[in-house]
Design a protein around this nucleic acid. Structure first.
Length: 344
DNA sequence: GATTGCTCTTGAACCTTCCA
DNA sequence: TGGAAGGTTCAAGAGCAATC
């Protein structure tokens, strides 16, 4: 493979001149440029991407980092990727999805900075080492989801309005007459869980309704989503038979709820309304009855996050920005008016 | 002829890995 | 252990035309 020296030798110029012909960073005479391009064509030369990155101290690659070992993508994630990719395409960036697990990255031979100019992080949590580590390295960063309070003023982020989302979902169910609503939230340490819970509580306070704290539960990270939905539904419906509606974190949790309801001979939505904080346009309509949910705007989140990050890369020291995407409900068939003793 | 301003080119330095 | 390799950057230099 020919390199810059070979081209410079054949064209009779220095390698800096060859570099400037390709980068157009400095004007090179027409005659010299043509000589360089002819030599490059003869030798089938292309500037080396990594050597260029070495000198530039940038790679034109954006990283996308998911927490833990999360490797199964939902429709939300695919939408999010589409949004990020669209921005990368239009602004000349490549995308690197980080596939190095924490198990690998702790081994000495794998310890290295990532080959990216900046990172987009998904699903922030309390004491999220991914954020502190990047701040320490001064790596440009945009978070999808609200970072913990400690970083909220120093890191740009894009998020769904999860407080508003939790509130409109709870208000919708309260308006349908449900007063005992089980909230199968995600892991407690995730900020999305805290925000949705805050909105959920707000709706009860606004309606001047009492709230039973035992009906807000959090996912155990070791359980699969479906098992979590199934086990919690069986356990809490046994101890709290007055529950008439369940809000789940995802459609997979809702699947567990559906399985438990079937075993308990409960009809959805007549006996039990089910709502999911997701909008899987392929998966949700396949539920029987189709699952009511909320539009998570994955593509908009991805696109806005990439835009913010690229802006940071091009204009260093840009101010910290927060973008909140408003929520909207997607009505299908899994929610109805609360049953009463009369219509039971 | 000296000076100035502009265009274009040169070469060291940058950083990490590989190989002798 | 030290040199070579990879492409870009930037200060400095060469060359030339315009001006005084």
């Amino acid at each position: 493979m020919a390199n810059i020296d070979d081209v410079a030798k054949i064209a009779g110029v220095s390698k800096s001149t060859v570099s400037n012909v390709f980068s157009k960073k400095r004007p090179i005479s027409k005659e010299v440029s043509q000589r360089v391009l002819d030599a490059a064509l003869d030798l089938n030369y292309r500037p080396n991407y990594w050597a260029r990155s070495l000198a530039n101290k940038r790679t034109n690659i954006i990283g996308l980092n998911m927490p833990g070992e999360q490797v199964k993508f939902s429709q939300f994630h695919l939408g999010l990727f589409n949004g990020v990719l669209k921005e990368c395409y239009s602004q000349g960036y490549r995308l690197l999805v980080n596939t190095l697990s924490t198990e690998f990255s702790k081994q000495v031979e794998y310890v290295a900075t990532d080959p990216v100019d900046g990172d987009i992080l998904l699903d922030p949590a309390e004491n999220d080492e991914r954020i502190s580590e990047r701040i320490m390295r001064k790596l440009p960063l945009v978070v999808i989801g609200r970072p913990h309070h400690e970083y909220e003023s120093s890191v740009s982020y894009v998020d769904n309005d999860n407080v508003g989302m939790g509130q409109i979902v709870a208000e919708h169910l309260l308006q349908l007459g449900h007063s005992h609503i089980l909230f199968l939230n995600t892991q407690k340490e995730r900020t999305v869980a805290q925000d949705r819970e805050q909105g959920f509580i707000k709706a009860f306070q606004k309606a001047d309704m009492p709230i039973d704290p035992k009906l807000i539960v959090y996912k155990d990270g070791k359980l699969t989503s479906t098992t979590y939905g199934y086990q919690m539904t069986k356990r809490l419906l046994a101890s709290h038979p007055q529950i008439t509606a369940i809000i789940t974190d995802t459609d997979k949790v809702a699947l567990g709820v559906y399985q438990a309801a079937e075993e308990l001979k409960l009809r959805i939505p007549d006996d039990l309304s089910v709502f999911a904080f997701s909008d899987d346009s392929i998966y949700a309509p396949e539920f029987k009855p189709p699952l009511t949910g909320v539009r998570l705007n994955g593509e908009v989140l991805g696109s806005e996050a990439a835009k913010l990050l690229i802006e940071q890369l091009r204009v260093p020291n840009t101010i910290v920005k927060r973008i909140l995407i408003p929520a909207s409900l997607v009505f299908r068939g899994s929610c109805a008016k609360a049953r009463t003793e009369n219509n039971k």
